[in-house]
Amino acid sequence: MIKAKVFVTLKPSVLDPQGKQVMNSLHSIGYDNIEEVRVSKFIEIKLKSDDLERAEDEIHEICEKLLANPNTETYSWNLEHITGE
């Protein structure tokens, strides 16, 4: 099996009110060193096949089709072989 870790991130040009709120909270509890916070999505996907090339293609396709909104988000992923559970 293959495990895909997919990261869906707001584009730098898009404001992230959640990230800003988290940053404000961190500042309020004393973490003055924090410059910026961006909140993203992390999605774990297990694939049945062990074919890395096929997995690359499929993950790319589903990012485009569903996982990310191209207007506001970018995405990246990495793949690793895992043993079935």
């Binding site: 898009v14 404001l15 009110p17 959640q18 709120q21 909104n69 207007n71 506001t72």
Partner: peptide
Amino acid sequence: LTEIGLLPGALMMNESL
């Protein structure tokens, strides 16, 4: 309508959360 591409742009979380 924005998700299916009939309208441009996106609806994001309110600034106030």
